[in-house]
């Protein structure tokens, strides 16, 4: 391995472009993020620990992580199904559906939040239908799951789609001509190939869901201990000028985000290795 930092090139502008990249990255991202940890350093360990393990905060982790996990699981199943339908079948309206998958990326989260609330509130189109059956969706944990399923929807579809499209058909044909049923072919041949990408997509959806705020706060009802997500608690603490408390919870969330980032990177490497 060469000890030189950069390999020779006749292209100009390396110093300028890398210098500017590092300068802007530090200014906008690195220094601000470091300030959270520096601020947390002002707290002593006991203060920090009692804040991040108080009953109300613990209840919010349970809701945020539980609902994110369920939403990611729902997206894993239905995202795979949608990706399958979009890649493998020709039907009218397919192009439209394919384009609209990215809606949760393009639609502002606050708009998604009030729209979902309008649909699932007791007076709404679906809420009015579910409420008499005893199923509470809006202003209950189920509402949080619905909102997070919406925001995470594109992740699984968009990670699985290209892998599914690149899958070679010969193995399926060979298995079928040797007498395997369609279910067997799916279980033994297709699923092992696409499983890493389903997992990556779900992990991305989960990571996004844990920090999600805008689409959730309208539909959740925000009752302490019951339907309060962790990002909302940070805002509540800030509104009470409890910077230390807000920072402590933010540090927990940041550490979890970075851990998720690491896991997702490893998963993506796994997907890349499985593809050839």
């Amino acid at each position: 391995m060469s000890l030189k930092f950069k390999q020779q090139s006749i292209l100009p502008g390396f110093g300028l472009s890398l210098g500017y990249t590092i300068f802007y990255l530090s200014l906008i991202v690195l220094i601000p993020l470091a300030s959270v940890f520096a601020y947390a350093g002002r707290l002593n360990w006991e203060q920090f620990w009692t804040t991040v393990t108080s009953p109300r905060v613990l209840a919010s982790y349970r809701l945020s992580f539980g609902a994110s996990f369920i939403a990611a699981a729902v997206n894993a199943v239905f995202g795979l199904l949608v990706a399958w339908v979009l890649v493998r079948y020709q039907f009218r309206g397919r192009k439209f559906l394919d384009a609209i998958i990215d809606l949760p990326f393009a639609l502002p989260t606050a708009v998604a939040g009030i729209a979902l609330t309008a649909v699932y509130a007791p007076t709404g189109w679906l809420g009015g239908f579910l409420e008499p059956l005893g199923i509470k969706t809006a202003f209950a944990p189920a509402g949080v799951v619905i909102a997070l399923t919406f925001t995470g929807l594109p992740f699984v579809v968009r990670t699985v789609q290209p892998v599914l499209a690149d899958l070679s058909k010969e193995n399926e044909d060979a298995a079928a001509s040797l007498g395997a049923t369609r279910i067997q072919v799916f279980k033994r041949i297709i699923f092992p190939e696409i499983f890493p990408s389903v997992l990556t997509g779900s992990a991305l959806a989960f990571a996004r869901a844990v920090g999600e705020y805008g689409s959730v706060v309208f539909i959740s009802g925000n009752m302490p201990m019951k339907t309060e997500i962790t990002p909302l608690l940070i805002i509540t603490k800030l509104e009470q000028f409890d910077y230390a408390g807000a920072t402590a919870i933010a540090v927990v969330m940041l550490v979890i985000s970075f851990a998720m980032l690491l896991i997702i990177n490893l998963l993506q490497r796994w997907v890349a290795r499985n593809q050839f």
Partner: peptide, 15 residues
């Protein structure tokens, strides 16, 4: 992309 939007805002309040 990995950071919660709320934490992204908090960062600048702390600064």
């Amino acid at each position: 992309f990995a950071v919660s939007p709320v934490v992204s805002g908090l960062v600048f309040v702390l600064l």
